[in-house]
Amino acid sequence: MNKKSTMNSAWERLVNGLVKENPTFVLMLGMCPTLAVTTSAMNGLGMGLTTTVVLMLSNLIISLLRNIIPSRVRIPAFIVIIASFVTAVQLLLEAYIPSLNAALGMYIPLIVVNCIILGRAESFAYSNPPIPSLFDGIGMGLGFSFALTCIGAVREVLGAGTIFDYSIMPASYVTINIFVLAPGAFFVLAMLTAFQNFLKATRAKVSEEAAAMVGSGCSEDCMNCSEKGCAKRFYDTQASDKLPDVNAEDFQEKPKTVEVEDMDEKEEV
């Protein structure tokens, strides 16, 4: 009985990370690496898997230590744990996959400030047992890898006519270089967000409750959040005098319903 429920929960965490709360497409977390390293599908996949490993291990360790870490110093403690794993992974990559290490460069140490990892530590691992936390890390990491690979593939096909370095476009295809360059990242992400707004608008009524779950990676603490793509934060800045459209209201209302009890625990970091 007990074992079965653990299994269910583990499976549920995996699906949750991959589909329901996909960190990139749904939660819009970790936009920095998403834009920076997705020049090709391979780089996206490499970055995704590297993050997965760090996320998995940090979730596991934080969950094991959750009764020992005092809640006042939990954020520095999380950062130290995450930074240790990032350093370890970086050294391993340097030793065994130097080509990937060269391609990703500075963005590997910058995994430390990737808000997906700190977000999951705070919102899941710190309050859940090790096994679900481990699978939550795997699920979230794979969801992130999947998203990065997709974005990378789109940019690679449009910008270079290849996918995973295999040429798939006819020889007459003229590559659109801009998609491999920096501006392309902004354009692809803009299209993606617009598409997501479209999906949200059409599904809004059908799944009010499911949509309410979306905010669970959010700590409601916009001041200290490193989440750049967060729509809520975007609408929450000082100049909130105008909230012109329906989407703005969607973004604002959703998380409030589920996060109320969470908020008591958050204090200034």
Partner: peptide
């Protein structure tokens, strides 16, 4: 356009 309000427009601007 409606779905481009907010974030997508900002991202397009940043791209330009």
């Amino acid at each position: 356009p409606e779905y481009f309000k907010g974030m997508p427009t900002v991202l397009l601007t940043a791209g330009l």
